[in-house]
């Protein structure tokens, strides 16, 4: 799918720790294999048991909107034609305590309410530095 903020908009700078989230086409969250603690963003140590047996696990790809704001001021030239757009915090099903950020696509931005159920969809892009394919997680409203 084309990108919510335009195909020319900024892409994430890939790191070892964000590559699963931005390239896999799933909502990948870091879990501790020793104690099953989930944490976002990922880190080198488990914040619950201090272990280092950490791995990414795919979650079901659904969640709930914890907050949603309309951005009116275009902070980047590429956003001039995109405002107002909606930015959300989503609590990820299957990853207790983990919230991620994103946009809700496919609906008027002002229609996104706190508590709305959402499911992940993925925007296709390429990492300009490496040419690697990106699948950037986004969210769409789940109709009741």
């Amino acid at each position: 799918m084309t990108r919510y903020l335009g195909d020319e908009f900024l892409t994430p700078t890939l790191t070892e720790q964000n590559t699963p989230f931005f390239t896999s086409g799933r909502i990948q969250i870091q879990f501790c294999d020793d104690c099953d603690h989930a944490q976002q963003p990922p880190d080198d140590v488990c914040y619950s048991c201090q272990g280092t047996n950490l791995a990414f696990r795919a979650t079901p790809g659904t969640g709930s909107v914890e907050s949603a704001v309309l951005v009116h001021h275009p902070i980047h030239p590429a956003l001039q034609e995109r405002v107002p757009y909606v930015v959300v915090v989503v609590s990820v099903d299957g990853a207790p305590g983990c919230n991620v950020t994103g946009n809700v696509v496919g609906c008027p931005p002002e229609s996104v309410e706190i508590g709305a159920r959402v499911r992940a969809v993925f925007e296709e892009a390429k990492d300009p530095a490496t040419g690697q394919d990106l699948l950037i997680p986004q969210w769409e409203l789940v109709q009741d």
Partner: peptide
Amino acid sequence: PPGLGWGLPYGLMTPAQECALHTKR
């Protein structure tokens, strides 16, 4: 901040936006 970098592809790039998400909720 590293946490804010995750918001970049979503146009979540400023302290104002970050604080707005908290304030709205």
